[in-house]
């Protein structure tokens, strides 16, 4: 590609998660409706040498391009325009296509442990001969389900269209906090007495529920007394 300045802009048409409304298309600016959709469709346009990409969190964008088979060079600047719906309204899914909801892998974090592969019921992942985990059937992924990302011990799975941090590809600032949040080894928590473990969990649930009820009641009371004044 010969253009010395080439900018790609994603509008996040499906969900309106980015704010790029101010950028107009032009000779050196390519505005696409939805980067996730383009990647899923294998749009050859993605192979263009872009100097800037205005879209999501950089980790998500880089992983998307890599998944598309066109990893971004270091020289490409990724501008984080993520606003999680504060910009324009979502336009909904495009034409007759299913929503472009699927995982991409952050290979800087992935340890190839294969838990996602074992976890997913729908064959989204596969282990390649080189031992790496790959997303092979993105269209089999179930819309809005980021469950595999939640169990990933390395927080390496990104769903760009998730609103959960860091599953949405947001930068991981506090590594310790993220790791603490990852589902711990289920075997250990369950221990030898599954019944005791699950009964203890029931008590925890009831306590949580009571607390929420009290909070709600207090909230109501505040509202009512506010109205009286």
């Amino acid at each position: 590609m010969s253009a010395n300045k080439s900018i790609l802009v994603c509008r996040c048409a499906e969900r309106g998660l980015v704010d790029t409304d101010g950028i107009a298309g032009g000779e050196s600016v390519l505005v696409i409706p939805d980067l996730c959709r383009a990647v899923a469709d294998g749009d050859p346009m993605l192979g263009g040498a872009f100097s800037e990409v205005h879209a999501c969190h950089p980790r998500a964008v880089q992983s998307l391009f890599r998944f598309a088979g066109h990893p971004l060079p270091d020289t490409t600047q990724v501008i984080d325009c993520r606003c999680d719906g504060a910009g324009h309204a979502a336009l909904g899914t495009m034409e007759d296509k299913p929503p472009a909801w699927y995982p991409v892998i952050d290979y800087d974090r992935c340890s190839s442990c294969g838990q996602c592969l074992e976890f997913c019921l729908f064959g989204v992942y596969e282990k390649a001969p080189d031992g790496r985990i790959r997303v092979v059937n993105p269209d089999q992924c179930k819309n809005n389900c980021p469950a595999c990302a939640r169990i990933c011990p390395e927080a390496a799975i990104i769903f760009p269209k998730s609103v959960e941090v860091p599953i949405n590809g947001a930068e991981i600032d506090d590594e310790a906090a993220v790791r603490a949040n990852i589902r711990v080894n289920v075997d250990e928590i369950l221990g030898d007495d599954v019944y005791a473990a699950l009964r203890a969990r029931k008590q925890k649930r009831k306590a949580l529920l009571n607390r929420k009820k009290i909070e709600r009641a207090l909230e109501e009371r505040r509202k009512c007394s506010g109205g009286d004044q």
Binding site: Q115, E118, F119, L121, A147, C148, R150, I151, V186, D187, L190, D192, D193, V194, Y195, L198, R199, K202
Partner: peptide, 21 residues
């Protein structure tokens, strides 16, 4: 009963393995 509203099959298969249920 003990009840579990499970997210995925990983927890379930762990529960079923090992003759604990």
């Amino acid at each position: 009963y003990v009840v579990l509203v499970a997210e995925g099959s990983t927890v379930v298969t762990r529960l079923l393995d090992g003759g604990k249920v």
